[in-house]
Amino acid sequence: MKYLIKKFCTLIITLFFISLLSFLAFQVIPGDAALSKLGTGATEQKREKLRREMGLDRPVLEQYGIWLKNFGQGNMGESYTYSLPVSEMIREKMPANLAITAMSFLMMLAVSIPLGLLAGRYAGRIPDRILTVCNQFVMAVPGFFMGILITCVFGLALHWFTPGGYVSYQESWSGFFGYLIFPSIAIALPKCAMGVKLLRSSVIGELGQDYVRTAYSRGNSQAQVLLSHVLKNSLLPILTFWALAIADIVASSVILEQVFTIPGLGTLLVQSISNRDYPVVQAIIVLIAGLVVTINFLVDLLYGIIDPRIELRG
């Protein structure tokens, strides 16, 4: 319980600092929000009036308080460029990223756990060698290049999907997932390779432990020992990697969106950066960072559940 409370406090403090930093970062930029919203043609009085409406004449910390309060209520401000509520723009774009992240993560789990076990079990033998070589190559391919290759092979040559033919989930769920599965593969592949590499060394370490010999001596079959004893213990050090992988997957989805022309958060982020549309940039960044921190918190909790010893130490 103490462990849980400590972790929870850390989570809250980190979230607070993330929001503060993201807010302050966009305060130091030279430039006038009222000016960029109204354009250079507006008169000085008009700008002054808008500045007061937006609360820009107040002290910075007070502005932060107001912004945080609104943010907590789901009001993320208004886009400078489109004059739309930011929350609405984000809600519209978010499903694509969530789907890509979830699918890539599941693919990573589904591929890396069995292959990692296999490579660790046959360490130094043929299956392991083949996997190690493949891993080195797969890890070396940048995500967006993998995306381009996949578009080329599955889209343009084999016609399994139409590049650029993204279907919104509102139109058809099967079309939505059917299209997003390809960017998900591109993101998941390097992560799979990394996962296999880590799990392999973890499994090798566990196989040398005394409890494995005990388990065999009690008459357990090899499959039983591997699946019910070794796997659970080997996964423990990998959990941290998975948490970091989620952050990476979210970041890669921002780039892969461009490769597959999916109108998601990444496209919105890039556009907003080019247009200097700061409320949008700010909101997206806080959301993604918040998501990552929350996931890390959940992984910490999971650690406590899987390995009860951590509770004692914490």
């Binding site: 993330i18 930093l21 993201s22 952050a247 982020l269 990552v292």
Partner: peptide
């Protein structure tokens, strides 16, 4: 450090670029 780790590398770089 704990704070910075919360942001994926490229995202953090994008913040700086936008500034």
């Amino acid at each position: 450090n704990d704070l910075v780790v919360a942001f994926p590398n490229i995202l953090l770089a994008l913040i700086f670029i936008s500034i």
